[in-house]
Design a protein around this nucleic acid. Sequence first.
RNA 1: GCGCCGAUCGGAUAGCGGCUAUUCCAGGAGACUGUAAAUCUCCGGCCCACUGGGCAUCGGGGGUUCGAGUCCCUCUCGGCGCA
Length: 415
Amino acid sequence: MKKPIEFAVVKKLEGTLGRAGVIRTPHGDIETPAFIAVGTKASVRGLTTDMLLELGAPAVLANTYHLYMQPGEARVRAMGGLHKMMGWTGPTFTDSGGFQVFSLGAGYGSNVSKIIKDAPVVPLLRQKEDEAEDRQPKLVEIDYDGAAFKSPHDGSIHYITPERSMEIQHTIAADIIFAFDECTSPSEPRSYQREALDRTHRWGKRSLEYHRSKPISEVQALFGVVQGGRFEDLRKESAEVIGAMDFDGFGIGGSFAKEDMSTAVKWVNEILPEGKPRHLLGIGEPEDLFMGVENGCDTFDCVAPTRLGRHGTIYTRDGKIHIGNAQFQDDMSVLDPGCGCYACRKGYTRAYIGHLYKSREMVGPMLCSIHNLYFIINLVKEIRASIIDGTFMSLKKAFLERYLASVANADAVPR
RNA sequence: GCGCCGAUCGGAUAGCGGCUAUUCCAGGAGACUGUAAAUCUCCGGCCCACUGGGCAUCGGGGGUUCGAGUCCCUCUCGGCGCA
């Protein structure tokens, strides 16, 4: 049977789980480690595919749930699938909708998101669904077979099972698709994490069986998703169970406190088969990318570059800045001196881009998104190169010292 | 000169005798990690023993009232009308 993708390790990062490699897909190679741009609704917000090409995006990740809701499977099919509809000829991924089980479920209306600031306060018993008075009602109900989503568009109910998620992802036709999983909230107690993990494993198996029963599995790769929250035994068990299944690669999912992330990733990647690619779902701050690579992850995706860019936060080698802040009004330097992105090469000043942002001109968020995406994608490319030429540790030290210095200083200065 | 109308935060507004003066914009700051997000939160008169509390404040002055941005008188300024 023909394999949809091939993965080869080019060089290992000695003494760690890290490696540089390449994933060959029907739409081209992805040199790993790589940062995948998020294009949820078949669009990387604010950017055309030519811009993505220009800034060097290795691949795009779209979303099953969102495309299913809008414009719907039938129209995606009628437009010729993801690549054709968005005019992107490079590699693509789709997330299964598993994240929406969390973001529209337990995460909905709460202040709990993908990464939480403090270690979770886990209740002894799971609180009743309707416990929070001023919470908006959730849009998701989870059961044994799948999850029922209430459409925010018209209130209609849509029941997604592993098989349905596969079916929709087959229609969308990305190169790499993910098994349907349940991303849990870190505030759930261990008993619930246990229960949800069994569900994710069951759903993973069903996703795989359904996928393998279709000829399309020869051209579309399926990645299984590992969960388990912050618990070592659950994470390891999940890596064993999912890792033993015949997936083409793996995704590492979950929502957790930042300090739990590196341990979780390490536990998992020590177990997952070395010869298959590993994607760290939804992670992408610079410090997290170094951590993820060092701990054996090959690909990453994250909304941060585009969302932060749209909202006026800019990545620079010296830390993040808010471009709309008064201090940049007369700043004639580029966003990040030395940066090779379109906006910086073109010489657009901080003063100008801050003005665009504040006056709500569309090119402001667009230029910021280009810059941020370039910054992160290029950082991961630098990381890859450093693995190959053996300078990873010095790059990591030099980059993080400079990048985090401003943050440290800001924290150290009393207000 | 007479009459009518108006004056509330930088701008625009709500308020029609009741305790905490509303909202929007502009301004300042922050948040954001498999996109409910071109979004959201906070600040925005003064003072303090700042997890809270105190004192102000609706063009100026005076009055009525337990209580006034709100009612009355007067002045100032602006708009309109009549001489």
